[in-house]
Amino acid sequence: MRALIFPVCWLLLMSPAAWGTVFPDEPRARTPLVISAALDLSVVSPLLEAFQAAHPRIDVDFREDTTLAVNDSVSNGPPAPDVVISSAMPLQMARVNDGWARRLDSPQARAWPDWAKWRNEVFGFTFEPIVMVYRLDLARHMLPPQTHADLQQLLTSHAELLDRRVTTYSPQVSAIGYTLSQQDARYSTRFWELVDAMGQLNAGLERDTQTMLEGINEGRYWLGYNLIGSYAMAYAQHHPDIIVQVPMDYSLVMMRMVFVHRDAEHPEAAETFVNFLLGPEGQHVLAGQTPLFSPLTDMAGPWTARRLREQVGEHLYPIPLDASLLAFVDPARREAFMRQWRETFGSVEDSPSASP
């Protein structure tokens, strides 16, 4: 787990009365804010820095961890985290459904799109495409895939060359990997044929996007399937041999889900942070400075849902943020799905130390 404490910027020349005028929505005293997040600090830093600049009397304690650890942090208190952020959408929904979230009644929460929130308790504040990634030198051997059909064709026509050189999430040990596989099966009638093709090539099953990106960059893998686009795009900015492809036939879209913990020790600071995420200030940072993408249709910038639709068309399928996510945490459904996965993929040797 990584934690980052952002220092407080003291405004020495301002009186407490002036503070109230400049920051009417903040707690009067210096306040800590604990955020438990499955979100890479390197990607979200511009957002945290902008929040800190706007609210200098709130000390942000950002605790980056795995989706499983973040999920456990919800009920492992006291103390509880003030804010919970995760890409594991079904786990977040299950926690909210069990009553762990505080309902927000702010202008930002009320104005947030209905399709990206649930009961004004949990909010999807990003719009991250799920992508394919390949090494630039793959093009020397074959035409890089642009669609799922292209990918399946490559896996069968270049089987010998791609043996052990393809990677994807392990749905067994990764919460987001399991969710993506379930959604793929929902949208594609050929999903299980793709799983079979990857199994025939002894594809490497990994627990996170970062590990897959590192494997592709090092040459252990040539091609990666179902990586989180925000991480892949940020990585590719500093690794020119890495090419990110948003599938042109259909692309799943994941949303980071955020809620204020019902037992937050600093609820005012927590609500201030979530309102910042949902408001124009936070969304402008997402759209302009991070590849997390703003879901708002009226937001301008290089990282927006609108810009993504202009490039890909209408083949973007956001994972629904509604009660249907609860089905994915049902143990019987999970076991049935994983049984079919193992039978189709073949031998699965997941590392016992791996985690979502």
Rank of each mutant, 00 (worst) to 15 (best):
L4K: 11
F6L: 13
F6I: 15
P7V: 09
V8T: 05
W10L: 11
L12H: 11
L13T: 11
L13A: 02
M14Q: 00
W19A: 01
G20T: 08
T21M: 07
V22Q: 02
F23G: 05
P24Y: 00
R30V: 05
I35W: 01
S36L: 06
S36F: 07
A38R: 14
A38W: 15
L41N: 08
P46T: 07
L47F: 05
L48G: 11
A50G: 04
A53S: 08
A54K: 00
H55L: 00
P56F: 02
R57I: 05
I58H: 05
I58T: 03
D59N: 05
D59T: 10
R63E: 08
R63Y: 11
E64T: 07
T67H: 13
T67L: 15
D72L: 03
V74W: 10
G77K: 00
V83E: 01
V83C: 00
V84H: 04
V84P: 03
S86D: 03
S86R: 09
A88S: 14
M93T: 06
V96P: 08
W100H: 15
R102S: 10
P107K: 01
Q108L: 09
R110T: 00
W115D: 15
W115H: 15
K117C: 06
R119H: 10
N120Q: 02
F125R: 12
F125D: 08
I130F: 10
V133E: 01
D137R: 08
A139Y: 02
H141A: 01
P144N: 08
T156E: 15
S157Q: 07
Y169G: 02
I176Q: 05
L180W: 07
L180Q: 09
Y187V: 05
S188K: 04
T189A: 15
D196H: 14
M198C: 01
A203G: 10
A203P: 12
G204H: 14
L205Y: 05
E206A: 12
R207S: 11
Q210R: 14
I216C: 01
N217I: 12
N217V: 02
R220D: 14
Y221M: 04
W222L: 02
G224E: 00
G224W: 03
Y225P: 01
N226S: 13
I228S: 01
S230W: 15
S230F: 15
A236D: 00
Q237M: 11
H239Q: 11
P240V: 13
D241R: 14
V244L: 02
Q245L: 11
Y250F: 06
L252T: 13
F259S: 09
R262N: 06
R262D: 12
D263N: 03
A269T: 02
T272F: 02
T272L: 01
F276T: 00
L278I: 09
L278S: 09
E281P: 08
E281Q: 10
V285C: 08
V285Q: 04
P291T: 14
S294N: 07
D298A: 10
G301C: 06
R307D: 04
L308N: 04
Q311K: 03
Q311V: 03
E314C: 12
H315M: 10
H315G: 10
P320M: 06
A323H: 12
S324H: 04
L326M: 03
A327S: 15
F328R: 06
R333Q: 14
A336R: 14
M338H: 14
Q340N: 12
W341I: 09
T344H: 05
F345G: 07
G346F: 12
D350N: 05
D350H: 10
P352K: 11
S353I: 02
A354Y: 04
P356F: 12
P356L: 14
